[in-house]
Amino acid sequence: MNITVLAFGILSDLLENDSIQLTLEKQMSVSDFKQYLIKNFSKLNGYSNFSIAINEAYASDDILLNENDVVALIPPVSGG
């Protein structure tokens, strides 16, 4: 399953990238995907303080990722 991952704020600094193409072996929920990232991307250094948005909308932990989703990693926002 192919997805695009977008990273923002501190996460784009940690990953040294703001867009990554990923192929997942199986369909995952948002919470599974977060665990997957923390496990497979050592650059995150265990950083887990982020939310997930799928296709430009916040996604709760139980939502499933689908083929071609754009999955954004949203660290705590600080606008205003």
Partner: peptide, 28 residues
Amino acid sequence: AIDTLKETVPIWKKEHFESGEVWVNSHP
């Protein structure tokens, strides 16, 4: 509107100091 914007809108600020820079709110 401003209180909710600060909680939900995906915008981030990086503060630049004489001694370096830091992403605001990013460290618990």
